[in-house]
Design a binder for these strands. Structure first.
Length: 875
RNA sequence: GGGAGCAUAGCUCAGCUGGUAGAGCGCAUGCCUUACAAGCAUGAUGUCACAGGUUCGAGCCCUGUUGUUCCCACCA
């Protein structure tokens, strides 16, 4: 027998096991008509990113589900892949370019720059995959995809063109969110609002006729050069008479109209609002209604442009200062209040976003949202936990058109060509060489690329071969089953996948969206680079083992809720792994059999553990089916540590070390059988250590990960035996408690007399009472033949009285006090119970099994109370 | 302004369809009992935020209150 180390060493085991799985094709999903498919597509991480704790959790949850389903006999496919992550990746490469060579992307030009990005992608693209492998991810790596690979690109092209042809993609000039730092448009979802302290400037705009001035209140004085009107509420008595007149825009000396619009709130500010249609979405709308000019005053870099008069060339913050100073100098600044307000910032660089009017491409959302809402409302796609369905529908009901063009180079370039001759657009699935309208060769491709999420939105079907309708994978594995992701990208991604799939495949992409929370640091803060409070999952895996990390990430929190990450908790999980390791080590040290089949004869403790295991199996399976992974894991944990290790192994020791060879073999068989079943139940959570141990045990088949998930067995339900042994265990616990209270060391054995009506049960438990109850000798007598209590310690359990002659060790007064305390506790409980049972409402309305259970409990309590009272009398 | 979550042991959190309040860590006491001191045994600690209601019975269901966190929208 191999000598195993006392302490489990995960590092060596994990890499070796993973390699073995991979080499033997354990992760490969075959299309098997005999099996049902089960498919998960992985949320593709940024190709140049690194695995963080959130990924680790996401990865673990998916791996648990996929391993569970694989063991249940499904053709389980987990499609991995990475995302090109437009802005993020481009920024990184630009940074490197600047730092290493002092160049900008413009210095290189588009083509050469893109070559650089691909180099970067090829260099770092495998890093995240390696990290996922460390976590134990059982993906089908051969089906790995990238959002810009050929197939995905084809899908993107197809979707763009078909949406365009249906009129669901259009180009238009709208107010969009513009990041002057990233120099691109952003979608609404990519803007994060932050409360920032600022000011409310009250500025005087003189009436052109010289009859006074209006005061407008604004938080953004630097946009005033683009003002093309002042709006007041039509009902506002203060300003009604001025509507139709004009004011002269200070500093620009331009005459602009005063218009009436319901948009203005009379109670806010001064009731007069400056209108800057080119730089504010609301002003833009008002501008449309009143035919106001649109004057853009900021350029793409956030600097004042030629329309900004003398401020041209200043950046937006300089311009603000200058405008304010000039107005003050002119006596036009009425007052400045402190005012904090929400400012939109770029989700990438966190710089302030500018609303700017710009010609961009949009997806028309309303028609798409309809079906996307229906599938969720009608339950074709369910959210777990279901409260997130509300988050989803809320967003979908109010969704605005999606700005999909980005002024970047890295991404899917928009498949539209503009003709220099006829001015028309050619929108094409293939690269165009001539104008589709006039045949001119003078065409130029739209330089913009698509929002990264445009391609991610197609991920569930583009990875399976769509738009190729003949794709076998698509036919077999699509629609997928479960999508696992954090609640933070429901809008970015989940929503867009659902409407895209509904539109292009006519099916919802998955039936379940399993949402998890964020992993936070131990103080409850979000882990972030800027705070420097991130914990590297790989470092944790290195120190405690990937199994321990995984277990930590799924236990102790419930679906959809954030969790705090405590490194100390990993220690506890590592200890658990070690516990299993040592239990297995013990078993292997005692193993003389080469098969784990159950014996035909079972003893009391065998039936007890088998029966408990038997009820654990459907219990855990049900939790898994309901995505209550943490609860399932906890139950397996408890069973292993408490039932198997602390009790069953201890109960078998006397047999393993005893003379009876048959009994010894049978004990080994049951130990081995139960351990094997446990390893299966635990495998999805802790794949490495379970596989390692299973390989060392007698087994059939090649890998634990390909074994069949345990099922309930009618022939292994032993309710009576289970209950019987519990009675002995109760006695053992009672003895231990008393001895501990009296500070008797375990080494000091004592004689034990058991007076009970359950003589058979206790007879079967003699060995246990000796070993675990520290009895030197055990005598069992009928209940009515209980010995004289004088000079003995008497311990009362509901089914037995235990007598131990160690009077000299006992402090009588203390003992009496203790019994009185116990008596009180039990009689109080009994009183409560009796009150309940004499309540006619309870007896008549509560279900019969509940009433019976309570009656039974009252009976045993009454017996216990009587015995305790009797015992007190003798003292 | 709209929506959602959370409030349970000293700390972090579980608690499934209402039926005797749990875990891990920490704490206390005793044990090197030849699988494991990363362990074993035993123990202490709860007005389940507050106030009502439904029910025979509420940590769980309903209403309201307070505190707290988050999401969405956004008034210049």
């Amino acid at each position: 027998m191999k000598e195993l180390p006392k302490v489990y060493e995960p590092q060596e085991v994990e890499s070796r096991i993973y390699e073995a799985w991979e080499k033997n094709g354990c992760f490969r999903a075959e299309r098997d008509p005999q099996k049902k498919p089960f498919t998960i597509v992985m949320p593709p991480p940024n190709v140049t990113g690194q695995l963080h704790m959130g990924h680790a959790m996401d990865c673990t949850l998916q791996d648990i589900l996929i391993r569970f389903k694989r063991m249940q006999g499904f053709a389980a496919l987990w499609v991995p892949g990475t995302d090109h992550a437009g802005i993020a990746t481009q920024i990184k490469v630009e940074e490197a370019l600047r730092n290493e060579e002092g160049l900008t992307r413009y210095d290189l030009g588009r083509e050469k720059f893109l070559d650089r990005v691909w180099d970067w992608k090829n260099k770092y693209g495998d890093r995240i995959v390696a990290q996922q492998k460390k976590m134990g991810a059982s993906c089908d790596w051969e089906r790995s995809r990238f959002t810009m690979d050929e197939g995905c690109s084809k899908a993107v092209r197809e979707v763009f063109v078909s949406l365009y042809e249906k009129g669901l993609i259009y180009k238009g000039s709208r107010i969009i969110n513009w990041c002057p730092n990233c120099v691109t448009a952003l979608s609404d979802a990519e803007v994060e609002y932050q409360d920032k302290p600022g000011h409310m400037w009250h500025m005087r705009y003189p009436l052109t006729d010289g009859s006074g001035y209006l005061v407008v209140a604004t938080t953004r004085p630097e946009t005033m050069m683009g003002d093309t009107g002042v709006a007041v509420h039509p009902e506002d008595e203060r300003y009604k008479h001025l509507v139709g007149k004009t004011v002269t825009l200070p500093l620009m000396d331009r005459e602009i109209p005063i218009v009436a619009d319901e948009y203005v709130e009379m109670d806010f500010g001064t009731g007069c609002v400056k209108m800057t249609p080119a730089h504010d979405p609301n002003d833009f709308e008002v501008g449309l209604r009143h035919n106001l000019d649109t004057i853009r005053v900021l350029d793409d870099n956030g600097r004042v442009n030629a329309n900004g008069g003398k401020y041209e060339g200043m950046d937006r913050y300089e311009a603000r200062k200058a405008v304010v100073a000039d107005l003050e100098a002119l006596g036009l600044m009425e007052k400045i209040d402190d005012y904090s307000h929400n400012v939109g910032t770029c989700y990438r660089c966190h710089k302030d976003v500018e609303p700017i009017i710009s010609a961009q491409w949009f997806v028309k959302m309303e028609p798409l949202a309809k079906e996307a809402l229906r599938v969720v409302n009608e339950g074709e796609t369910k959210f777990v936990p279901d409260r997130f369905a509300k988050t989803y529908t809320n967003w979908m009901e109010n969704v605005r058109d999606w700005c999909i063009s980005r002024q970047l180079w890295w991404g899917h370039q928009i498949p539209v060509w503009y003709c220099a001759d006829c001015g028309k657009m050619t929108v094409s699935r293939e690269d165009a060489t001539e104008c589709a309208h006039c045949g001119s060769k003078h065409i130029e491709r739209d330089p913009d690329v698509l929002d990264t999420w445009f391609s991610s939105a197609l991920w569930p079907f583009s990875t399976l071969g769509w738009p190729n309708a003949d794709s076998e994978d698509l036919k077999y594995f699509y629609p997928t089953d479960v999508l696992v992701t954090g609640y933070d990208i429901i809008f970015f991604w989940v929503a867009r996948m659902i409407f895209s799939a509904c539109e292009h495949t006519k099916l919802p992409p998955f039936h379940t969206v399993f949402i998890h929370g964020l992993v936070r640091d131990d103080k409850g803060r979000k882990m972030s680079k800027s705070l420097g409070n991130g914990i590297d999952p790989l470092e944790i895996a290195e120190n405690y083992g990937a199994d321990a990390l995984r277990f930590n990430l799924v236990t102790g929190n419930s679906p959809g809720n954030d969790m705090r990450f405590y490194t100390e908790r990993c220690e506890a999980m590592r200890n658990f792994a070690n516990k299993i390791w040592n239990a297995s080590r013990f078993l292997m040290m005692n193993l003389t059999i080469d098969k784990c089949a159950l014996p035909d004869k079972l003893e009391l403790e065998d039936k007890w553990i088998l029966s408990k295991l038997n009820s654990l199996i459907p219990d855990v399976t049900e939790n898994m089916d309901r995505y209550e992974l943490g609860v399932a894991a906890q139950k397996v944990y408890d069973f292993i540590w408490d039932s198997y290790c602390d009790w069953y192994i201890e109960l078998t020791k006397s047999r393993l070390q005893g003379e009876d060879a048959d009994s010894k073999t049978r004990a080994q068989q049951v130990l081995c059988y139960v351990l094997t079943e446990i390893l299966k139940l635990l495998h999805p959570f802790m794949p490495f250590i379970t596989e390692e141990i299973w390989q060392a045990l007698p087994h059939e088949g090649d890998f634990l990960m390909l074994q069949k998930w345990p099922e309930y067995r009618e022939d292994l339900a032993f309710a009576a035996e289970e209950k019987a042994l519990e009675q002995v265990m109760d006695a053992i616990r009672a003895i231990r408690t008393r001895r501990a209270e009296m500070n008797v060391p375990p080494s000091r054995k004592a004689q034990l007399t058991v007076a009970t009506a359950q003589q058979d049960v206790f007879a079967a438990g003699v060995a246990f009472l000796k070993r675990l109850g520290y009895a030197s000798e055990v005598t069992i007598v009928p209940a009515e033949q209980a010995p004289d209590a004088a000079g003995q310690v008497v311990i009362v359990t509901p089914v037995a009285q235990l007598f131990i002659p160690m009077g000299e060790l006992v402090d009588l007064a203390k003992e009496k006090a203790r019994i009185e305390k116990e008596l009180k506790k039990n009689s109080d409980e009994l009183t409560k119970l009796n009150a309940k049972l004499s309540n006619p409402g309870f007896v008549s309305k509560a279900p019969a099994n509940v009433v019976n259970a309570e009656k039974e409990r009252a009976a045993t309590l009454a017996e216990l109370v009587a015995k305790l009272e009797e015992q007190l009398k003798t003292m």
